[in-house]
Amino acid sequence: MDSSVTALPTFDLSVLILPNELDFQLPTNIRLGHLAEKIVSELIQASTNYKVVYENSQIIEKQKTIGEIDFIIENVKENKIIHLELAYKFYLFDPTISSEAINNWIGPNRNDSLSEKLEKLKTKQFPLLYHSITAVNFDSIDINRVSQSLCLLVSLFVPYAFKTKVDPAYEKAIKGYYLDSKTFISLDNVEKVYYLPSKKEWGMDPSQNEIWTDYKSIENKIATSIQEKQALLCWQKYKETYLSFFIVWW
């Protein structure tokens, strides 16, 4: 997502000059956010125009961690140092919250939001670079030479049958829709098959999935999740069409 939304300088992964074939091993026992960090780290290191100088650097003051800096990277062709923060998020659009679109993108369980994330980046994450203790951690670089950028990778979802046009700045990140379980059940038919990906699989394309099942096989898991107030991502295959959507409890 670019600076027209975030009001922060943007680092686009498309600037990385990468070999035609990439081959790296990814850990299987880490959370989705850390998996995204690992992938981005591997891409930067595989590129010919950037390198990772520091990664996941904890800033510690008086034996207390006051924050963490995701990446310090270098554009080796231009000799430029960048403090790069990475965020990989899934947000749903609730038009009832505010007249300002930026305030209406919330987490699937309504306990976080895009606007809160951006505020944290602006007031905590990026200023951390200039904390008095940070320079000690990064003694091989001149902090005053470091620029700052955000790589915000987002998947956005709008309400089912949502007719209002979304701002073009968000539109390209829309991956699907969300609905409640009652609506989901009403749309089911015998030709549709489903898969409920684990959170680590959320970043995959549904068309890559090979395991599909009917509604009856996932009925209990959906009911339990709704009761526990946990939204579910669901993939659907219908004939040759694949869809991705959240089933929400609210």
Rank of each mutant, 00 (worst) to 15 (best):
V5S: 08
T6K: 12
L8N: 04
T10C: 09
F11E: 00
F11G: 02
S14L: 12
P19N: 12
N20V: 13
E21F: 10
E21K: 13
E21M: 04
L22K: 04
D23H: 11
F24Q: 13
L26Q: 10
L26D: 10
T28P: 07
T28N: 14
R31M: 13
R31Y: 11
G33E: 12
H34F: 09
H34M: 14
I39Y: 11
S41I: 04
L43K: 01
L43E: 02
Q45W: 00
A46E: 06
T48L: 15
N49I: 08
Y50E: 03
K51L: 07
Y54R: 07
Y54L: 05
N56L: 06
I59R: 05
I59M: 06
E61L: 15
E61F: 14
G67S: 06
E68L: 12
D70V: 09
I73R: 06
E74G: 05
K77N: 10
E78N: 08
N79Y: 10
I82A: 04
H83T: 05
E85F: 09
A87R: 02
K89F: 03
Y91Q: 02
Y91E: 00
F93I: 02
D94Y: 04
D94N: 12
T96Q: 06
S99P: 03
I102F: 00
N104P: 04
W105F: 07
I106G: 02
G107N: 02
P108F: 02
L114W: 00
L118M: 06
K120N: 03
K120T: 02
K122N: 07
K122T: 05
F126H: 00
F126M: 03
L128K: 01
S132L: 05
T134Q: 01
A135C: 02
F138E: 02
S140R: 03
I143M: 01
N144V: 01
Q148I: 04
L150S: 02
C151R: 00
V154A: 05
A161Y: 00
K163P: 00
K163T: 05
P168L: 06
E171W: 00
I174C: 03
Y177H: 06
Y178V: 04
Y178W: 04
D180G: 08
K182R: 08
K182W: 01
T183S: 05
F184C: 12
D188G: 07
N189C: 10
Y194R: 12
Y195H: 09
W202M: 08
G203L: 07
G203R: 06
M204K: 11
D205K: 11
Q208D: 14
N209V: 09
E210N: 14
E210Y: 09
I211R: 08
W212K: 12
Y215G: 12
Y215M: 11
Y215F: 15
I218V: 13
A223L: 08
A223D: 10
T224W: 15
E228S: 15
K229S: 11
L233K: 04
W235G: 01
Q236R: 15
E240H: 14
S244M: 13
I247W: 05
W249H: 14
W250A: 14
W250K: 15
